[in-house]
Design a protein around this nucleic acid. Structure first.
Lengths: 269, 269
DNA sequence: CAAGTTACTTTAGGCCATAAGGAGTTGCAA
DNA sequence: TTGCAACTCCTTATGGCCTAAAGTAACTTG
């Protein structure tokens, strides 16, 4: 059993919060470093983006940089810390200033969509465990951004906190569906449609009494809840699951925002 | 690159949907099976419950049953399938009949809480990838259960579908926080409070300008959004994070249900 | 009783993270 | 100028993981 002591906490927090991009005048004995933390982190992100989190190994990252896996340990304490750094660096892409001219609701909607897009673009981010949160600068920056929008509602602090948490849950949950659908073919090598085809064929074979056993699921399907909607003028024509799941996301988000409005009405009178 | 062909789909669907508990009169050559799929699946669940998903290895399961890892492959095609079976079996614990006498809202609230409790009790379930969903009987049973409650709202099919998805996102997201907090000490060996203590000390050291940099996060804290509430008469006194996170969950859930009510008002007039 | 089937084991190969120790490079102090 | 200590990067090794392949022993049936 390995205990992470004080030293580890210091080292990894220092890495997360280090002033980046300031090379400074180096003057130390030993060969010049051929790599850098930034370079390694970016390479890690590239690997994860292209091949999924499962393919992220120290070797894979090292190889892209023309080094062995062990060379990375000069720059980064271990894989956990590398992933944390990748996470925080990726988060830096998220936009930050949302206009409140039209009120909190459009701003919050835009924020939610931006976040959704971000997760879908970097599916591996959703696989970073939140168990021990990555307390990096960009995590807090993101938090500050939503809170800035939410301040406009004038709701009480505890309520604001609950809203933020739930918003993240909704956005991440919705993004997860699409993200995993994109990741799965890369990680398993089986195309999405092929998998579904084989699977649903098997399902009919193995559960011929499906309709009686699950009447409400069946009814939902019969009422067309899974029928693809046509691509409207504003949609790019995107794979079925992605399109559907974005709509589902919008439905859920709208309902939640309606709930916030109800809370505001209740609070102001 | 290993392609999962038709055969794999058939085998694993058959396992998921097999008629359990019917031993029948066996008569086959070769030694009597000393184990069974059920036994292996239950042992797998026990390992995951006690030590977390990271500790779930074929060896660990085999060892508990007095066998080698390889012995399990007689019963189960591989680890992926074992996890799928564990997932579906665990889901069987969820209750199924919710009274609608008091309307959909209390029923849905109860359902959400039962699900939350379930995930918190079996944290590893949240780590089972939904990328390629486990199309087992209990997945559909759970779905049918919520849909039964939601039918009462009389809302349109697509809306119902969106609500179900988002409900799952909210419940799972909220449970994830607690689940991961329970899992982390088991998997890393570092107690929760110790980790936080070391971490927040480092944070102050490494980001002394925190308050100016993240004014709204700071404000939220100053307004007491993170101050533990006292244990009311209905609360068991549970660790800080768990208590807080359950309250946050309730806040989010309430808002979402309010949103559903708003949608119903809009639909009926 | 022979043959075929089955349960389970051992062995091995190919991944993974990372500890330990060694080789070679470089800046500075003596 | 000459060590020396610091530094990067490598090789090697340990101990994990999943699982393919082949072997052994137990059992039923023809």
């Amino acid at each position: 059993m390995v205990y992470a002591g004080q030293g580890d906490a210091r080292r990894s927090m220092a890495l997360l919060w280090r002033a980046e991009g300031v090379p400074g005048v180096r003057s130390a004995p030993g060969p010049k470093p051929g790599l850098s933390v930034d370079l390694i982190v970016n390479t890690g992100i590239a690997v994860a983006d292209e091949q999924g989190m499962a393919a992220l190994s120290m070797r894979a990252v090292g190889e892209r940089l023309g080094r062995t896996a062990m060379a990375l340990y000069t720059y980064v304490p271990g894989k956990t810390e590398l992933v944390d750094l990748m996470y925080d660096r990726a988060l830096a892409q998220l936009p930050t200033g949302y206009s409140l001219d039209a009120g909190w609701r459009p701003a919050l909607t835009a924020w939610a969509h931006d976040n959704w897009t971000f997760y879908v673009r970097h599916p591996w981010v959703l696989q970073v465990s939140q168990a021990r949160p990555v307390l990096g600068p960009n995590e807090f920056r993101t938090l500050d951004t939503v809170l800035g929008i939410l301040a406009e509602t004038g709701l009480e602090a505890r309520l604001r906190r609950g809203i933020v948490t739930t918003l993240f849950d909704i956005v991440r949950g919705a993004a997860r569906t699409v993200a995993e659908a994109r990741l799965a073919p890369k990680e398993t090598g089986v195309p999405e449609d092929e998998w579904w085809l084989a699977r649903s064929a098997m399902l009919e074979e193995v559960a011929p009494d499906f309709a009686e056993r699950y009447p409400l699921v069946t009814r939902l399907e019969n009422e067309g809840a899974f029928t693809p909607e046509e691509c409207g003028p504003y949609d790019e024509c995107v794979p079925y699951l992605e399109n559907e799941s974005r709509r589902t996301f919008e439905t859920g988000l709208t309902l939640f925002l309606d709930g916030i409005e109800a809370a505001m009405r209740a609070a102001y009178k």
